[in-house]
Design a protein around this nucleic acid. Sequence first.
DNA 1: TCAAAAGTGTTTTGTGTACACCCATGC
DNA 2: GCATGGGTGTACACAAAACACTTTTGA
Lengths: 252, 252
Amino acid sequence: MNTVISKNNKLITKTAAFEKESHLSYFNIAVSVDCVIFGYDNDDLKVLLIKSDLEEYAGLYSLLGDLVRPDEDLESASYRILKQRTGLENVYLEQVQTFGEVDRHPSGRVITVAYYSLIDIQHHDLQVNENELGWHSVKSIERLAFDHKQILDTCLQRLRNRIVNEPIVFHLLPEKFTLRELQKVYEAILDAPLDRRNFRKKIAMKDWLTDLRELETDKPHRPGRLYALKQEYKSPPVIHSPQRASGNQSRR
Amino acid sequence: MNTVISKNNKLITKTAAFEKESHLSYFNIAVSVDCVIFGYDNDDLKVLLIKSDLEEYAGLYSLLGDLVRPDEDLESASYRILKQRTGLENVYLEQVQTFGEVDRHPSGRVITVAYYSLIDIQHHDLQVNENELGWHSVKSIERLAFDHKQILDTCLQRLRNRIVNEPIVFHLLPEKFTLRELQKVYEAILDAPLDRRNFRKKIAMKDWLTDLRELETDKPHRPGRLYALKQEYKSPPVIHSPQRASGNQSRR
DNA sequence: TCAAAAGTGTTTTGTGTACACCCATGC
DNA sequence: GCATGGGTGTACACAAAACACTTTTGA
């Protein structure tokens, strides 16, 4: 934005300071971030929710979010929430969409920037159950506080689109995993069964994995090979969620 | 729609009221929308820009944007800008991403929600040139005020992804058009040449068009057939930009 | 020896891509 | 009759999808 149109439509050059003064009255919209924190456990895609503390939504759960502070970036706010709630620092985070309907929040005008995040549910040291914070099966969720059901649906759809071409589901898994485990993650996210041979072929083509030449243990059946994501794809978390083209472009 | 919540609104419980009070100091982030308004003319993708009126960015152009008012939705703000600047009301609009770095705006903390829009450049009745408002070839743009170059790039990437599967480029064209004109729009957006026969085959497969059984006129060569987008795809503008799956899903 | 899952290939179908010739029109 | 773009089909390569049997392990 540059600009408010002056009444007489003249081009007025002004300093930023002046502009700030003249628009102080607009500075009364709050900005929050809401994080859809996905985890995977027991062949099931989960999301981290907390009991809403607003009476308007008594009994309903909501996503984890907080107001953005004036001196913090949107991503920083999301990482702050993730750290607070899960104790994790290096997580995958992607901005999805901003929800800003006038009446979406009963406390006043709050627009919220939605992020989703993928974490290894086994691996965090979070304070689940404190404040009725806990994991919920995504499929079973029917209502949430605010417009959070819509936000969840939007983020889930984005996740489904992303996993096809981007090596990100690995954030949900431990370091070492079998192809069966990987397939089950995909099936849980897509909520659809996949053909085993075709799945393995497709994953092999992506060339994302290293064969660790180890076998899983303590399974009551033939053990599977263990794989890990190749180092080059273990990128640091995405700081500024980029647009990704649907094909063809370079990889860092 | 309710607007700003009054201080003594009964619906606000202690908790909500307390939350608002305790966070009043956070209510000083401004929210803006910025619109990347695309047009198509002379085989070239254009974007509508205005000379920045901030001294910090003297001489640079910027996107069209404005602060969001406390009582207006994000989309409403975008439509307001579009109406103001182009006179058009029923335009295609899609939310893309929100940019919120602390220091992205010299006037203070302003986070901005980026939208892109597609309009028929011939058809609007806009006040171009007033305030140095005008169309610029997207390819030629090297710098913009603020982070607007990044916003433009992000929106362009989104547009490129969308046009493959969604019948939206038609918003850039007049009602009737030939397949050559359509192909040129795709080439301009994708910035790549396309094979004519393959292009026609692909468009035919989409089944988006009606053959009007008319020919273009006044061309110094064999006239092409005129087509129009099928009525069922002439959807009203997208109010709340949805997530679209990348494949496989049903078509209305 | 049984239960459970691992591992593996071939065929068919559809899609993407490369490529060349004749046709209709205005000038 | 020539310049300009309109209109069309085929062959190949590759990816997606359907589909079944043998192997390995622990209990």
